[in-house]
Structure formats: structure tokens, C-alpha cells
Simulated assay, not measured.
Amino acid sequence: MRHTYRLDHFALLVRDLDRSVAFYRDVMGFSPIERTGSANVAWLDIGGGDAIHLIQGDFGATHVTKDTHVAVSTADLDALVAELDAGGIPFTDWPGNPGRIGVHRNGFRQIYLQDPDGYWIEINDHRPPTV
């Protein structure tokens, strides 16, 4: 049987919860979600009903590479790149060229940046066809 899914949330293990919340709030523009519960977990709204959970804990065994990344899409990649440039926030294309916007083989543009724990984030202007 075929099921239909949509992203609900993704979770990242982080070293310093406050530092990571500040990055995802101030750089990425995600909105904190007020929740009760554990002091070592924060939720942020990434848009469209989707969320990120940041969980502070033992980061020791975590291995981060660019191949394992989170990708989000934005309607105005040029405005975002201008904000990153103005804020001195580094980004690259897929090969790692600083300050370059890459073009995916399917034609959409993309950049990559890292959060405070080294997780890679792809930001692109990919808009899949509506069904």
C-alpha cells in the first residue's frame, strides 16, 4: 500500500542549545515555538507547518558531512544571499567555492552554509511542479 507523507519535523543534536537557537532564528529566520517540556530541547517553525527540533546533548559520536544535509527552499534566493553577505555569513556552492551560488543539474540554484555545530544546510530556489 502506498502512503502519503509530508515533513513534520527534523531533529538535530547540538552542543549549545542557545547558540543553535540564535543561529536558526537570526540567520535562517525560523520562529521559536513555545513548548513546555525538557530544558534541553527547542522547537522552531521553518514554515509550511514544518519544524526543527534542536536537542542539546552529547555530540561526541556525531559525524557531519556535506552529503548528509538539510535542504530548504526559498522563493527569493537572491535576497537571502544579500542578507548573508551583509551579515558576513559564509556560504559556498556544492564544490565549496566561497560566496558562489551553484546550479543543480535540474536547473535550480543552491547554496550551502553550516550551522554552529557544522551541520550543512542547503538553501535553494527549487519549486517542484504542483500536482
Rank of each mutant, 00 (worst) to 15 (best):
D117V: 12
Q110F: 01
G49Q: 07
G48L: 11
S38D: 07
I55K: 06
Q110V: 06
R15W: 01
N97S: 11
L113Q: 14
S73N: 14
G37K: 10
V41M: 08
W94K: 07
V103T: 15
T36Q: 12
R15A: 12
A75E: 08
R100D: 04
Y112W: 03
L7M: 14
T36W: 03
E83N: 11
N106M: 09
G118R: 08
R127A: 05
N97G: 05
L80K: 08
D18F: 01
H126C: 03
A39F: 05
H104F: 05
T4F: 04
R100M: 05
H3D: 07
P32G: 02
P116E: 07
Y112E: 00
R35G: 00
D8S: 07
Q114S: 10
I123R: 05
N106T: 09
S73L: 05
G49H: 10
V131F: 12
H9V: 10
Y119E: 03
L13E: 03
S73H: 11
M28A: 06
H104I: 06
L17H: 08
A86T: 05
D16E: 14
W94Q: 03
V72D: 01
R6V: 06
G49Y: 10
I111T: 01
Q56D: 05
R25T: 02
G48S: 13
M28G: 02
V41I: 15
D50T: 15
H63K: 15
G37A: 10
L12D: 07
L84W: 14
W94G: 00
I89L: 10
S31W: 02
A22S: 14
V21L: 02
W120C: 06
H3N: 13
D85V: 13
N40P: 02
P98Y: 06
I33Q: 07
A82E: 13
G118C: 09
A82R: 15
D117K: 10
N40I: 12
T36F: 07
F23V: 00
G29Y: 13
A22N: 11
L12G: 06
